[in-house]
Design a protein around this nucleic acid. Sequence first.
DNA 1: AGTATGAACAGACCGACAGTCGGTTTGTCA
DNA 2: TGACAAACCGACTGTCGGTCTGTTCATACT
Lengths: 192, 192
Amino acid sequence: MNKKIDRGQATREHLVAVATGLFTEHGYDGTSIEAVLRAAEVSRGALYHHFPGKDALFAAVLDTVYDRVEADGAKAVEGMTDPAEALRAACLTWIRSAADPVVRQVMLIDAPAVLGWQRWREGDEARTLGKLKVALRLAGRLAPVRVDYFAHVLLAGLNEIAMLVARADDRASAAVEAEAAAGDLLDRLLRA
Amino acid sequence: MNKKIDRGQATREHLVAVATGLFTEHGYDGTSIEAVLRAAEVSRGALYHHFPGKDALFAAVLDTVYDRVEADGAKAVEGMTDPAEALRAACLTWIRSAADPVVRQVMLIDAPAVLGWQRWREGDEARTLGKLKVALRLAGRLAPVRVDYFAHVLLAGLNEIAMLVARADDRASAAVEAEAAAGDLLDRLLRA
DNA sequence: AGTATGAACAGACCGACAGTCGGTTTGTCA
DNA sequence: TGACAAACCGACTGTCGGTCTGTTCATACT
């Protein structure tokens, strides 16, 4: 039971990879299962053997995107000891991540609508927000009641800033301004 | 040419009203044109006479939602002379508006995915963000480069806070905390 | 070796849905 | 009153997501 399982894994991953590209380029609604099938050269039966439906395929794609973003974040803060410094580094990394078209379309635009807000928020809480809340608690002298709210505000704010960079005519200079703005935001949120 | 035009207007508005309810309850994807037709007791031809497609119907719904939100905001600040005070009042009103299921589902969850981020942002810029930027410029002593970024951050942050209230078990007490958090956020963003 | 098992895959098929199209009705105005 | 056009009607179409009945084949068992 190894060659078979490996083969299954391979098609699964292949499907996720192909779907990631199509979802990013055309959005969830703009991507038909047919299109995925054609691009991946996989049969209908194979796809529905691995995924119960289109939204499950999307969820799998979203999962790999989360993985990548988390890995980038972890790499950015490794070795850091000062919580505030690590938080700042993680925030800047997140802004850069969110400039990636894949992250933008899949994580920020489609995910809430496809999964529904509730499921989306639960996933985000588990994979992103939770850590951010811990980091905020460690880094600042925020009142405990504020931590949750400000974690959401910070994350949403960073997303917005990242979107602004992505849309800017001159992305290079926008990125510089944006990172300054993000740093400034962080300062203000953490101030006593 | 009056009875006819009036009748057209009436069906149009009726469709928008019915669609608003269905979009709010089941989301954009969960609402079929068929369902709208049945609920509104209007024929297919009539609907497609007034709207080129499902997304156009959604756009019309979104428009009326914007209208209501704007009207609420305008009422909240009327008579105020201090820009900072008006800004604060508008923000709190916006939080309360965003707690409305219609606003939440239509404006915050579906709109970006249905219209596409670009079109959505352009609309939002014209109807909400633009005013907010002006208000921020008047109310604070923010560096001009910061105004744009912080306007986005503030709006997104307020949305998040509103969502937290909407999802809370005890909405009443959550609302109190949330408005305090929003006020705190505003203070921090406007501080020199 | 022979056979049973079940994962992986194949592709015809189905129902639902968004959108189209050739009509019909009905105010309006010259 | 007759031409005109807006409003409306509903059968029809193409596409799409999802189902269902197989078939293949690597492994486990005897």
